[in-house]
Simulated scan of single mutants.
Amino acid sequence: MAFSKNVKFDYFKVYATRYNKEKEVVEEIPCDLSDLFRQLQGIQVTERVYWMGDDQARLQNLECINDKWNLHFVRIRKSDFPIITKDDGTYSYFEDFEDDEGLGEEISALYDPSNYIIMMRRNRFSLSPTAVSNYFTSVINEPGFNVIFRPLIHPRAVELLRKDHLIRSAEISISDIKNARTTTKKSLGQILDKAGDIKESVNIRFKISIEPKGSKKSSRIPIYEEIEEMVNDPNVQKLEVRRKADENSSVEPVDLIQHRLVDYYQFKESDFDTQARNILHETVISRMHTLYRKRVEEINNTYV
């Protein structure tokens, strides 16, 4: 059976907060990190380190290609190592690490200074986007100056769901059901009306989905109209659906309240490096450039 790995990529717009002495207010403005990156290129890699508790974050490499910056970070662990397991049922420990060695978790990032967008891929145990923005803040080291990554949010997320889509599941969260709109209560059914009799706020979490195993590719949950009624109710805190554009498409998640721009790509076995037993940064960043080129027009016209 061929091996594959589905990887998620997140998009953020880079901002900076700084104190405006003339207006006596803290301003948040788009931030171009290009000057910072050129400064970092002149610093030895051993000095490009940021401490996170007992772990280190290091900017391993950065380069500018076609007016975009490729960034390669590693988070270095020197404690809390995992164990080595064997198929015969035994396990052992990492014993031959020197004091200057550790386990590294990688993160790849692509930065486009033309619209202040940073695209990031990370592993489960690697740096968070906040940790990376804190790294940049620490290098700039200017009082009152902070680098912030804001997720790209679709301004009209409800438009991402159409009536002809095949809705496979929906997850809904409503706060204070008594004060939700009547249409929302009706959409969820009479059981929600009963909750309104309780003399205090009641939160409800509702999830409906088709059982994937054994279901037809054309199966759908016929709740488009109900979802359309609920999406503009301010008491609806969460409204996520998993839908397919048609029966031959993949299932995709859509957050109809606050949809963040993300991409997924399935790396195949041929993308893996046999020595590293992983996907190399060079392979990942190359794919990121391809995905970004397909997204940049949408980003500039919709999300920014």
Results as ranks from 00 to 15, higher is better:
residue 116 Y to E: 10
residue 135 Y to D: 09
residue 142 E to L: 08
residue 140 I to H: 01
residue 146 N to Q: 14
residue 153 I to T: 04
residue 120 M to P: 09
residue 123 N to L: 13
residue 115 N to V: 12
residue 139 V to I: 15
residue 126 S to R: 08
residue 128 S to V: 12
residue 147 V to Q: 00
residue 125 F to V: 13
residue 139 V to N: 04
residue 141 N to L: 03
residue 142 E to P: 03
residue 166 L to V: 06
residue 159 E to P: 05
residue 151 P to T: 04
residue 159 E to H: 12
residue 149 F to S: 06
residue 148 I to E: 11
residue 130 T to I: 14
residue 131 A to F: 12
residue 136 F to C: 07
residue 140 I to S: 03
residue 126 S to T: 08
residue 152 L to G: 00
residue 125 F to Q: 15
residue 117 I to T: 10
residue 127 L to M: 15
residue 134 N to I: 10
residue 120 M to V: 15
residue 143 P to A: 01
residue 152 L to R: 03
residue 150 R to I: 02
residue 121 R to F: 11
residue 146 N to A: 13
residue 133 S to K: 09
residue 125 F to P: 11
residue 144 G to Q: 09
residue 161 L to F: 01
residue 132 V to D: 00
residue 152 L to D: 00
residue 140 I to P: 02
residue 139 V to R: 03
residue 153 I to Y: 08
residue 163 K to N: 05
residue 135 Y to L: 08
residue 124 R to P: 11
residue 165 H to K: 01
residue 129 P to C: 08
residue 138 S to D: 14
residue 163 K to A: 03
residue 133 S to P: 13
residue 130 T to G: 12
residue 155 P to Q: 01
residue 167 I to E: 00
residue 145 F to E: 00
residue 149 F to D: 08
residue 152 L to Y: 00
residue 135 Y to A: 08
residue 142 E to I: 13
residue 127 L to K: 04
residue 156 R to N: 15
residue 115 N to F: 12
residue 142 E to S: 04
residue 157 A to R: 01
residue 169 S to D: 06
residue 162 R to V: 08
residue 137 T to Y: 10
residue 136 F to L: 09
residue 168 R to G: 07
residue 125 F to N: 15
residue 113 P to Y: 12
residue 144 G to E: 10
residue 147 V to F: 00
residue 160 L to P: 08
residue 134 N to D: 15
residue 143 P to N: 02
residue 132 V to N: 02
residue 154 H to K: 03
residue 140 I to E: 00
residue 135 Y to M: 10
residue 117 I to D: 05
residue 114 S to N: 13
residue 155 P to A: 06
residue 147 V to K: 02
residue 164 D to W: 04
residue 128 S to R: 14
residue 135 Y to I: 07
residue 120 M to H: 06
residue 136 F to D: 00
residue 127 L to N: 05
residue 143 P to C: 01
residue 133 S to V: 11
residue 138 S to Q: 13
residue 151 P to L: 01
residue 114 S to C: 10
residue 124 R to D: 13
residue 155 P to K: 00
residue 154 H to D: 06
residue 163 K to S: 04
residue 122 R to E: 10
residue 142 E to G: 00
residue 114 S to Y: 11
residue 160 L to V: 03
residue 149 F to W: 11
residue 168 R to P: 04
residue 132 V to W: 03
residue 132 V to R: 01
residue 128 S to L: 15
residue 149 F to Q: 08
residue 148 I to F: 07
residue 151 P to Y: 02
residue 148 I to G: 06
residue 126 S to N: 09
